[in-house]
Design a protein around this nucleic acid. Structure first.
Lengths: 159, 159
DNA sequence: TCGGAGTAGTTGACGTTTCAAGAACCTGGA
DNA sequence: TCCAGGTTCTTGAAACGTCAACTACTCCGA
């Protein structure tokens, strides 16, 4: 490892820009959602459920869909359950499993919050890009994301 | 606010891909640096200093360059100072200010760690993109990042 | 039927980030 | 001169994410 494969100028610009977006842009999204007593994680969980058939998902699948670790899911799910946004059911045929179901309350909360969050995302990213740039971004990030999703439980790294 | 400006299909793909990269990809970078007893924040700070004239920066400017809040800088700087990677000097003419200077030790540590980190970034992102895609990514993210950097202490949002 | 290996989910502790507050200092006007 | 308001940096508490156990269950082969 550690060959001399440095980053060229374009790659550096891309990488540094990504860091700026992540470190300066994303926290702003948290701030907005916090006014609705939610974190972005919560929002992702609600979205994932709302898009699932029957508005319900096995916890493992919910974690997958929301891009979070099982433990993080567990911790953040507590609030949503206490609030009645999500209900927990047991899986028939597997006593280990649990299924999270988006309640009507939860769905209404999502509908209320979503426009504000989307507006934030727009102001953060897409308001500054034209159609081509957005397509490029989707294509490039999509490739990277695909790789990350494909190797889920596979080899962590290196050889 | 809260008009009906939803995200179209391309925008959704871009945004969701970004979330995947952030939530699944970036944590991996932390893991690698941790083997060298560093966080990515530390690395960013070392890089920022190494690129500054005289390898030194006013703390405010360092925070800016490393994309971190003043308080986060303060907390994470402690380790680097204890270790001797960074030295602190007072600013002449302003007794409030402090200047962080990258020591020779710190510079050597950066040189040692950088290739591993860069290799990680490569495997995460650029190994999966061709030249055009990388250029697109740099252009699109660059635009977004520019906006974020331009409005530093200005209006947080909305009008 | 038993037992080891793997899966599903939870918990608590630890390290990090954030936020609000504060200490120290500078600036400019009355 | 003095003081109000802004800047610079630090600190401690609270909230969050991660990691390593741990419980409970399923699967499968002997």
């Amino acid at each position: 490892m550690a060959e001399d494969r440095w980053l060229d100028d374009t790659e550096q610009r891309a990488w540094r820009a990504l860091l700026v977006v992540v470190n300066r842009g994303l926290p702003g999204l948290e701030r907005t959602l916090k006014r609705h007593d939610l974190l972005v994680v919560h929002y992702s969980m609600l979205v994932a459920l709302s898009e699932a058939p029957g508005r319900s998902l096995r916890l493992t699948d919910l974690a997958e869909a929301a891009n979070v670790s099982p433990s993080r899911l567990s911790h953040r799910l507590r609030l949503l359950i206490e609030r009645g946004d999500v209900a927990i059911e047991s899986v028939e045929g597997d006593a280990r499993g649990k299924t999270a179901v988006l309640t009507e309350t939860g769905h209404e909360r999502l509908i209320e919050v979503a426009p504000h969050h989307v507006e934030d995302v727009r102001r953060l990213v897409f308001d500054h890009l034209d159609e081509d740039e957005t397509a490029c971004l989707a294509a490039a990030l999509g490739k990277v994301a695909d790789v990350l999703c494909r190797r889920d439980g596979t080899t962590t790294d290196v050889g």
